[in-house]
Design a protein around this nucleic acid. Structure first.
Lengths: 233, 233
DNA sequence: ACCTGAACACCGTTCAAGT
DNA sequence: ACCTGAACACCGTTCAAGT
């Protein structure tokens, strides 16, 4: 184990890695200065020699993660820009699924984390090469928004593995009465979804939304190119 | 002031209102049990007689807000389903702008807050009346996702009113070098944006994304209706 | 250079006790 | 029924002091 070298001086990097390990295993709430201290075989106060504050540490976690995302994304490049963007968004999603605390942490920042800029840069480069003008690229950045970072559709997790208390008959009747459309839809879709992993197969939802946005943007691009050709208006 | 009746017994409602007032004025972090206690002229522990826990209180804030949203939304109904959904999303956005702590709080829940279901029900009712089948309604719920609740595009606030330290020449050169596309785009768009409130006029971005999604869904609907007519395949 | 002990000002929450 | 005092087990952080 890493105990062998654990009495080496702490580094920012070791602290970040420890924090990610703890967050992955027990959730972001378990990442406290005291907890990291014991994990690293140090008193909590020792961390402050290497890191200015807990908030700074959390930003460092984001930077680490998005850094990895960018290094993955630069290698993704297909003929159709939509394939490129789609693949990068899916890579982001896969990364976030391995670190479920990350989306919430990223969303909690109110300033853009510096590590997010290279993600945008990569996107604009791809769009520009595909014939987007700057205005449409700008809109695209906003539209694709959180899909670039691998979240959005999954605002609310479907209770994960938690054993939901099964709804009694009275609750179901109340639901059917007050929310007839939702009830019917749930029944229909659940019935149709034999092939999917669950009624809400978030991977499929992610793909669908991404498709709407990508196709919409492609249409906007085509329209502009056509409009700017003389004699086509 | 409300001091006159403030020695009346506390109620859940009064606590929720106090919490919203504090959150609006000083941010959600200022909402602590002790703070609410002093605001309500009680000890913090008194709150536990009316509310099981702080987490439950935060859920109550969400329920209060989304309840208001639903009551507003039921009154919104236009001929074109897109106008209806757009107007409801904009109402949600306007509400969230008045309570900036709400999106983060909602996003932090990992189970769907009960108050969210009526929002979905209303949407599915509208879509069904417009000719959506249940599967497409289900997809629409996911696609429109957070737009229904008034956020998404605004993952990162544009630093609000905070006086950004103006970037020195070296920083700008570094930016131009490492992120050429982003730099150029920023320059172009800023130049074009004389009419808008700022380079990132989030209202406009919100509208644009919403338009992409609505038009994409309308296309999907039309395609299905056409496909299900005999002799059209 | 790197870390610790003691201390400060906070948290949410429980529970017996008061009126 | 409604509230308080005292207490518990936590937080992040500072700073003088140790090696």
């Amino acid at each position: 184990m890493s105990t062998v070298r654990s009495r080496e001086p702490l580094t920012r990097e070791r602290i970040v890695n420890a924090a990610i390990t703890v967050a992955d295993a027990e959730g972001i709430a378990a990442v406290t200065m005291r907890r990291l201290g014991t994990t690293l075989d140090r008193e909590a106060m020792a961390l402050y020699y290497h890191i200015p504050s807990k908030d700074a540490l959390l930003v460092a976690l984001i930077d680490d993660l998005l850094g990895r995302l960018v290094r993955e994304s630069v290698g993704i490049d297909h003929d159709d820009w939509r394939d490129t963007v789609r693949a990068r968004c899916l890579a982001a999603r896969a990364l976030m699924l391995r670190h479920p605390w990350a989306p919430g942490l990223i969303a909690a920042q109110q300033e853009t984390p510096v590590a997010a800029w290279p993600v945008y840069e990569l996107l604009v480069a791809t769009l520009t090469a595909a014939g987007f003008d700057d205005d449409l690229s700008h809109r695209a950045i906003h539209s694709l928004g959180s899909m670039l970072f691998g979240f959005t559709s999954e605002l609310f997790q479907p209770a994960a593995t938690a054993p939901e208390p099964e709804p009694d008959a009275a609750a179901m009747r109340a639901m059917a009465e007050h929310m007839p459309n939702l009830s019917r839809m749930a029944a229909t879709v659940a019935h149709d979804a034999d092939g999917a992993l669950s009624m809400c197969d978030t991977q499929a939802e992610f793909d669908f939304t991404l498709g709407l946005l990508l196709d919409g943007l492609e249409n906007a691009r085509t329209r502009r190119v056509t409009a700017s050709r003389p004699g086509s208006g």
